[in-house]
Design a protein around this nucleic acid. Structure first.
Length: 139
DNA sequence: GCCAACGTTGGC
DNA sequence: GCCAACGTTGGC
């Protein structure tokens, strides 16, 4: 299983909406590197749901339930989206400031390339971030 | 609201 | 194919 982090501006699409809708298509990505990451997602992969701009924190965990398919909101079929399902909120949101203050996370794509809206997360980083947010995989 | 980083566009 | 100009994103 792979791990990811997806960003959304809460003004455009928030975690609350994700929870209310359950399964939601993750559309609107118009960046080739982000698209590549989307296309690499597999069903069952996990992703952090990150609020950019006003809150700047990881606020929840989602699961990929449908792998890459053409983005219906794009004019052409060259862009990709996936469907994600809300799994659980972060008991304690992990803020960008906390992430930046953590030396073991300095290589996180979120930190190194702040404008990339879909980035990979290593298993090690995933675990660290889960610990910071107080979230445990249900057993 | 400002600015840095980065992507895209268009002239040459 | 290079590079300057411009637009967008996102942190502060």
């Amino acid at each position: 299983m792979a791990y990811w982090l997806v960003k959304s501006e809460p003004d455009a699409f928030s975690w609350d909406e994700q929870v209310a809708n359950g399964v939601e298509p993750w559309t609107g990505v118009r960046n080739h590197q982000a698209k590549k990451n989307l296309a690499a997602m597999k069903a069952g992969d996990r992703a952090f749901f990150y609020h950019s701009n006003v809150q700047r924190a990881i606020v929840g965990v989602v699961e990929v339930v449908r792998e890459g398919y053409p983005d219906p909101t794009a004019e052409t079929d060259k862009w990709v989206c996936v469907d994600v399902k809300a799994i659980a909120p972060m008991p304690t949101p992990v803020t960008l400031a906390q992430i930046k203050a953590e030396p073991t996370l300095e290589d996180l794509a979120l930190v190194r390339q702040s404008r990339l809206s879909v980035c990979p997360v290593s298993a090690e980083h995933w675990q660290i971030l889960c610990d910071m947010g107080g979230w445990q995989e249900p057993t």
